[in-house]
């Protein structure tokens, strides 16, 4: 469990770490809207490579990252694609405009086409791109920088405090959870290899002390914040925020380009010259799909 933490609490030393909070937050927003805007596999691939290059430049611990991608492949890649195949086998035709069936079940209700496989792959890759952007963001930022960055895009500072405090509390909760689990095992409660109903019951038994110990901290934390005059003024300054450096300016130009491209893409390719189908597929001819680029 501890192995899976990606949250940074101390500022790192690579150039991406040293950008200021505002740049990181607007960069993440830009990449997220770019991912939302499109299903084009080529753009997804570009975003994925960009994010992974960023992740690699930060020299992270690769083990939890590999675990996350493995988890995604099992839950979304395999199970999600199976669902597409079982529920809407015709989406190969509706999404890419063509159908080349290479396998059919006896009744003819289920069938596999190459386009369906491509569609499932493109959907899965969208998730991969989204995950890589989330990893890039979480690796580069500390909770305080996140709060400062959110505040600089006009988020009320009380919300920013909530975000940063929530990030900081997670390790505590994980530790409490492990403690409770260990003490239950000490008392001889079987936690692994039990039925679903029993597992649920045990989760509830662990939940009550976890809730109690977590919410018991509220009083302490809020008192110490009150003692330091939290919330007395309208605004707030942020210790972790620093003025924009040269690298920040370069990064912001780059982010502005992503935004500009996104607006252009939505206006031009979704409204003026909309292709006939949603998904670009490498072997579907231009005349059918409408992707002339």
């Amino acid at each position: 469990m501890n192995n899976r933490f990606l949250i940074n609490y101390t500022p790192g030393s690579t150039p991406l770490h040293k950008l200021n909070g505002t740049t990181k937050v607007i960069g993440f927003i830009a990449i997220t809207v770019a991912i939302i805007a499109t299903f084009d596999f080529r753009i997804m691939l570009a975003i994925f490579l960009l994010c992974m290059a960023g992740v690699a430049s930060m020299k992270p611990n690769w083990k939890p990252i590999a675990f996350m991608f493995g988890f995604l492949i099992v839950t979304n890649g395999i199970i999600g694609s199976l669902m597409v195949f079982l529920l809407t086998p015709e989406s190969g035709l509706t999404k890419t405009g063509m159908e080349t069936i290479f396998w059919q079940s006896a009744g003819g209700k289920l069938y596999l086409s190459w386009e369906l496989l491509w569609y499932a792959w493109a959907m899965f890759f969208k998730r991969v791109a989204s995950l890589s952007s989330a990893i890039l963001f979480i690796l580069s930022i500390t909770p305080s920088e996140l709060a400062a960055g959110l505040n600089s895009i006009k988020m009320p500072y009380k919300i920013c405090t909530i975000v940063s405090l929530a990030f900081r509390t997670i390790p505590d909760i994980a530790r409490d959870f492990t403690d409770i689990k260990n003490s239950m095992m000490m008392r001889g409660v079987e936690l692994e290899n039990v039925s679903l109903g029993k597992k649920l019951k045990q989760y509830i038994m662990m939940l009550v002390p976890l809730l109690m110990s977590s919410f018991a901290k509220v009083e302490n934390i809020s008192n110490s914040m009150d003692l330091r005059s939290y919330g007395k003024c309208k605004g707030r300054t942020w210790y972790s925020e620093h003025p924009a450096t040269k690298n920040d300016k370069i990064a912001r130009v780059f982010i502005a380009l992503i935004f500009a491209w996104w607006i252009f893409y939505v206006v031009f390719f979704k409204h003026i010259h909309a292709p006939a189908v949603d998904f670009w597929c490498p072997w579907v001819p231009k005349e059918i799909s409408g992707y002339w680029f």
């Binding site: 405090t161 405090l165 929530a166 809020s222």
Partner: peptide, 19 residues
């Protein structure tokens, strides 16, 4: 929305995320 609520909401969010 006093300090206590803010802290409780934050801890609730952390619990929600972790769980």
């Amino acid at each position: 929305w006093n300090t206590k609520t803010i802290v409780a909401v934050a801890i609730g969010a952390a619990l929600f995320g972790a769980l």
